[in-house]
C-alpha cells in the first residue's frame, strides 16, 4: 500500500469515527467537539486532494465559524453539563432508519454515476482561477449563484438586525 492511500484511510477513519461519536455521545459539548474533528477530517481530505483553497475555506467556515457558533449556543443552554437522557427505543430505531435511508439514496446516486477513469484533466486550482470563475458570467461561470447566495446572506443579516433591534420605549 502506498503512503498516500494510508493517509487517505487515516483521514477517512477520523472523519467517520468522530462523526459516529458526535451522534453517539451523551454529552452535548463533547458532541460539538467530535463534530468539529469530523469537519477537520474533511478539511484534511481536501488537503490530501491538493485542493488547499477548499480546505482552508472548510476550516475557516466550519471549524472557525459554525463549530464556534454551536459551542457558544451549547454554553448558553440550560443544564448543558448534564448527560442527556437515553432516548426511547422507538426514536432510536426511527433515527437509524432515516440515516440508513439517506445513506442508501446517496449510495445509489454514487453507484449510478459514471466516474471517468482516470479522473478528469487537472483543474486549475489557483486562487485567481477560482475567483475568476466565481465572477464569470459565461457558461462555466458562477456569478448568478454567487450573487444569489450573497442576497440570502444579506437577508439573514437584515433579519438578525431586526430581531436584535429594541423598539424605543416612547414609540407606540
Amino acid at each position: 500500500m502506498k503512503g498516500e492511500t494510508i493517509v487517505f484511510y487515516l483521514l477517512a477513519a477520523l472523519t467517520l469515527v468522530s462523526a459516529a461519536m458526535a451522534v453517539g455521545t451523551r454529552r452535548i459539548f463533547r458532541s460539538a467537539v467530535y463534530l468539529l474533528s469530523s469537519l477537520i477530517g474533511i478539511a484534511g481530505l481536501y488537503f490530501w486532494m491538493r485542493f488547499e483553497f477548499a480546505a482552508a475555506v472548510q476550516i475557516v467556515v466550519y471549524a472557525g465559524g459554525i463549530a464556534v457558533l454551536i459551542i457558544f449556543s451549547v454554553f448558553l443552554t440550560q443544564r448543558a453539563g448534564d448527560d442527556m437522557p437515553t432516548p426511547p427505543m422507538l426514536r432510536t430505531i426511527a433515527a437509524a432508519g432515516a440515516a440508513l435511508l439517506g445513506m442508501g439514496l446517496v449510495m445509489l446516486q454514487l453507484v449510478a454515476h459514471p466516474f471517468p477513469t482516470p479522473a478528469v484533466a487537472e483543474v486549475d486550482r489557483s486562487v485567481s482561477a477560482i475567483g475568476r470563475r466565481m465572477l464569470a458570467t459565461g457558461d462555466d461561470g458562477f456569478a448568478l449563484p454567487f450573487e444569489v447566495v450573497s442576497l440570502l446572506l444579506l437577508a439573514a443579516m437584515i433579519g438578525c438586525i431586526v430581531i436584535a433591534m429594541r423598539a424605543k420605549p416612547n414609540q407606540p
Binding site: 477537520i40 482552508a56 476550516i59 471549524a63 464556534v68
Partner: peptide
C-alpha cells in the same frame, strides 16, 4: 502553499476551540 495567508487565518481560528 499557494494559499499561505488564508491558511494562517484558517488555522489560527482553531485556537479559539
Amino acid at each position: 502553499l499557494n494559499i499561505g495567508v488564508l491558511y494562517v487565518t484558517a488555522i489560527s481560528s482553531l485556537n479559539v476551540i
